[in-house]
């Protein structure tokens, strides 16, 4: 127990790195994911195929493999990503964007076809259909899954520990080795994660309950 208190500042540093990793990757993943989702529902077949391939491949690839590519394989192409924070952000954003795209796409496709048909039949334009009818409904069923994606992202930042970023898990590994494997060290790390993940999980659940509506 004392270990955690004594090393509080080290924990805080690790926590800050994890938080920054999560925040930057989340913004980038949301941006890329939205573009991919838009491509996946675009009426242009070739773009749909490309976006679908992107999403399927990344969703079936381990995140470790993405890191592995950036760190060990990319240099063979003459691209030398500096080992560390920003490379980790790139990997996490790339990987997470596939899940963002999937969440957004299933949200939009989840809106009943009749909704859009009804909207068109009363003479709304494409923009109005999207703005007034489809998106408000899609957003409701997209936000809870997106929060779950972000929770997963928070946990996934730990993979960066294996690639020279000292975030929470990296901090825990150092402290643990320095203190002969004292189990409390990692309990401290676990608490730091739960501080983020459990409230977000509760938020997702309550939001989902609040926005639930009959279809």
């Amino acid at each position: 127990m004392d270990l955690i208190v004594d090393n509080a500042s080290t924990y805080l540093d690790g926590f800050a790195v994890t938080a920054r990793l999560t925040a930057y990757s989340a913004v980038a993943a949301l941006a890329v994911g939205l573009v991919m989702a838009a491509l996946r529902i675009a009426p242009l077949r070739s773009l749909r195929v490309v976006a679908a391939a992107y999403v399927e491949v990344l969703r079936n690839t381990p995140l470790t493999l993405v890191f592995f590519f950036m760190v060990l394989v990319a240099p063979q192409f003459g691209i030398l990503p500096p080992l560390g924070f920003w490379t980790a952000v790139a990997c996490l954003a790339l990987y997470t964007s596939a899940f963002v795209a999937e969440a957004v796409r299933s949200g939009i496709n989840g809106v009943g076809v009749g909704q859009a048909e009804a909207a068109r039949s009363i003479g709304l334009t494409f923009g109005q259909v999207l703005r007034e009818v489809v998106l408000p409904q899609a957003v409701r069923s997209t936000v809870p899954p997106l929060i779950n994606v972000l929770i997963a992202l928070t946990k996934n930042t730990s993979v960066a520990a294996g690639f020279a970023v000292v975030e929470l898990v990296g901090t825990g590994r150092r402290l643990s080795t320095a203190n002969a494997g004292d189990p409390w060290v990692l309990v401290g790390v676990a608490v730091c994660y739960l501080v983020i993940t459990i409230p977000m999980g509760l938020l997702a659940t309550s939001l989902e309950r609040r926005v639930a509506f009959a279809r």
Binding site: N156, G162, S176, G181, V185, L186
Partner: peptide, 14 residues
């Protein structure tokens, strides 16, 4: 709510 990697480290280190 915890990363799998953390649990693996709990296994090996702790």
């Amino acid at each position: 709510g915890l990363p799998v990697l953390l649990m693996m480290l709990v296994g090996t280190l702790a």
